[in-house]
Nucleic acid binder design. Structure first.
Lengths: 200, 200
DNA sequence: TATGATTATCTAACACCGTTAGCAAAAGTA
DNA sequence: TACTTTTGCTAACGGTGTTAGATAATCATA
């Protein structure tokens, strides 16, 4: 029964080369430039072969979306693990998030629709929950120390995420507007303010 | 010489109807759905006529971009004028910005590339400066009162803008994720924290 | 080993998209 | 009326996502 296995291996090989090629195109010329025909050309197969592995173009984007969320979750987990102090954890997570956004720019753009139209399904990936919890944990701990019990962890989580995403996406759009150092200052400033505010 | 004037009026009429039609398409089916052919169909002219009035599709988007920045500037100015107190002004501006983003969703998406690829030229519109100054003014006044002279108004401006944009774009992407009331709470929370931080 | 079924793959098309060259008709001018 | 300018059109080019249907290769079985 090695025959069918070899076939599966070959089929998986084609699937992988589709993703590899797509990724290469995106890295070189951006998401706008990705097309099924370019992929087919590059893997030296005809167009319909691509559709044997992915229902449509969105399915390919979705695959990268999943990859992106996994990668981001791992990066944030690593950052979080470098400290036990919740406040420090939050700061590290913010740094890691920032770092991810610009070292893995293509992932970030796809995941959060920065300057591209991310596919509908991208919006409700289950993978999102993982990194939500990652931020919620140190945040809740900080709030627990706080005397003011009215503040909501869920609300604060959204505030945190919004600050991060706002900073990142604005920097991504207006590339040369501000120097990198200033941007990092803005991030640190915003997060410091946020954490201070959190501690009451 | 009334003939050439009538001609100009007619030509302007076609130009207007192009923009009107385009805007209608966008409002009904989003930016993704806008195409030159659809515009031409709707105004009952052939495709090249559209190109007599706009060099290309980007030029049409740019026109809407300008409109958007003008509208936003006016709204922010109105909001600012409702108070003399800088802190209150900032709060009102934030509210107005938020309100603009969701009542004029299509403009906002185009202007800040939320879930669409805004054209290159959109990034460096001179109209942007107007509303930058609008925020900088009360911000500087607040900082002037502050004893700590190290904080930078430019930096704080970016922080402000990032918080706003982050909140808005995340809400725009994950439509039903959070209730509207919570979102408004997050905004108020973030801006209150920001202003408090500003006052030292 | 020949036959039938399955799988892999391709060609060619459909319906869109932005954009433009070149021509016909209309309108204005002399 | 004859000439010039403007106006508008048809038809194409090259690109996109997607799919129907034919062909060639491979496999399983008689």
């Amino acid at each position: 029964m090695g025959i069918t296995e070899r076939r599966i291996r070959q089929k998986d090989g084609v699937r992988s080369s589709i993703l590899d090629t797509a990724w290469k195109i995106v890295r070189e010329d951006g998401w706008q430039s990705l097309s099924i025909r370019k992929i087919a050309d590059a893997i030296e197969y005809s167009v319909p072969v691509v559709y044997d592995h992915f229902e449509n173009k969105e399915a390919i984007l979705l695959e990268f979306g999943k990859q992106g969320y996994c990668l981001l979750s791992n990066r944030l987990q690593e950052a979080k693990d470098t400290s036990e102090d919740p406040a420090e954890q939050l700061q590290r997570i913010a740094d890691a998030y920032w770092h991810f956004a610009f070292t893995e720019k293509e992932y970030y753009q796809l995941m959060f629709g920065v300057n591209i139209s991310c596919c509908e399904t991208e919006k409700c990936l289950p993978e999102k929950e993982v990194f939500r919890n990652m931020v919620m944990d140190p945040l809740s701990k900080l709030l627990a120390k706080n005397q003011d019990k009215t503040v909501n962890a869920c609300l604060k989580y959204h505030t945190f995420w919004s600050i991060m995403h706002g900073l990142i996406s604005i920097k991504m759009l207006n590339n040369p507007d501000i120097a990198d150092e200033l941007n990092k200052l803005v991030l640190d400033d915003a997060i410091q303010g946020f954490i201070k505010n959190l501690q009451g």
